[in-house]
Simulated assay, not measured.
Amino acid sequence: MAYVINDECISCGACEPECPVSCISEGDGKYEINADECIECGACADACPVNAPNPA
């Protein structure tokens, strides 16, 4: 199950460089994860200061 970024996202960008498959991009007001490319590694969640990425 791919990770998703919830509304707690503060758009700090800490998650984006941690993604090994580069499936995170800046969206409208928060970052977004491309579910088709996500490998469910959790690196984004580990890097997030507000725990915004979570398994869907």
Results as ranks from 00 to 15, higher is better:
7 D>Y: 10
13 G>H: 14
37 E>H: 05
34 N>C: 02
46 D>T: 14
51 N>A: 13
2 A>W: 00
9 C>A: 08
49 P>R: 10
20 P>H: 04
20 P>W: 12
53 P>M: 10
55 P>E: 15
30 K>N: 06
50 V>A: 06
43 A>F: 01
39 I>M: 14
26 E>C: 03
9 C>T: 10
38 C>I: 10
37 E>M: 13
34 N>G: 04
53 P>C: 00
19 C>H: 04
39 I>T: 13
12 C>N: 11
18 E>V: 02
56 A>Y: 04
42 G>D: 09
2 A>M: 03
46 D>H: 11
50 V>D: 10
48 C>D: 10
10 I>V: 15
31 Y>S: 00
1 M>T: 14
26 E>L: 14
31 Y>D: 00
55 P>R: 07
18 E>T: 11
33 I>P: 04
37 E>D: 15
45 A>R: 01
12 C>M: 09
53 P>Y: 03
45 A>K: 07
15 C>T: 03
29 G>E: 12
44 C>D: 12
4 V>W: 07
17 P>E: 13
41 C>P: 02
52 A>N: 04
24 I>C: 03
28 D>Y: 13
27 G>V: 12
38 C>F: 09
16 E>Y: 01
45 A>D: 08
22 S>Y: 13
48 C>K: 04
37 E>K: 14
48 C>G: 05
24 I>L: 14
35 A>G: 14
54 N>R: 07
32 E>M: 02
28 D>H: 12
22 S>T: 12
26 E>T: 14
9 C>K: 03
36 D>R: 05
31 Y>V: 02
53 P>S: 09
28 D>K: 07
23 C>M: 13
55 P>W: 02
8 E>Y: 06
45 A>H: 06
55 P>A: 05
12 C>H: 12
49 P>H: 08
23 C>F: 08
22 S>G: 11
36 D>G: 14
1 M>E: 06
34 N>F: 06
19 C>K: 01
46 D>P: 02
20 P>R: 00
37 E>P: 00
54 N>L: 14
15 C>P: 03
2 A>R: 04
7 D>H: 01
39 I>P: 01
43 A>W: 09
50 V>E: 13
56 A>M: 11
42 G>K: 09
16 E>S: 12
26 E>R: 15
5 I>F: 09
25 S>P: 01
37 E>N: 13
20 P>K: 08
51 N>R: 06
42 G>L: 11
50 V>C: 10
49 P>D: 12
54 N>G: 00
9 C>E: 10
2 A>D: 00
44 C>A: 11
16 E>R: 15
16 E>N: 03
40 E>Y: 01
14 A>E: 09
53 P>Q: 07
53 P>A: 09
51 N>S: 14
42 G>W: 01
16 E>Q: 15
15 C>F: 04
10 I>Y: 09
23 C>D: 04
28 D>M: 14
33 I>K: 06
7 D>R: 03
35 A>F: 02
52 A>V: 03
9 C>S: 11
4 V>F: 06
3 Y>I: 05
15 C>M: 07
21 V>N: 10
39 I>W: 11
31 Y>M: 09
41 C>T: 08
41 C>L: 08
45 A>P: 06
11 S>I: 00
32 E>V: 10
17 P>L: 11
41 C>W: 06
10 I>G: 03
35 A>C: 08
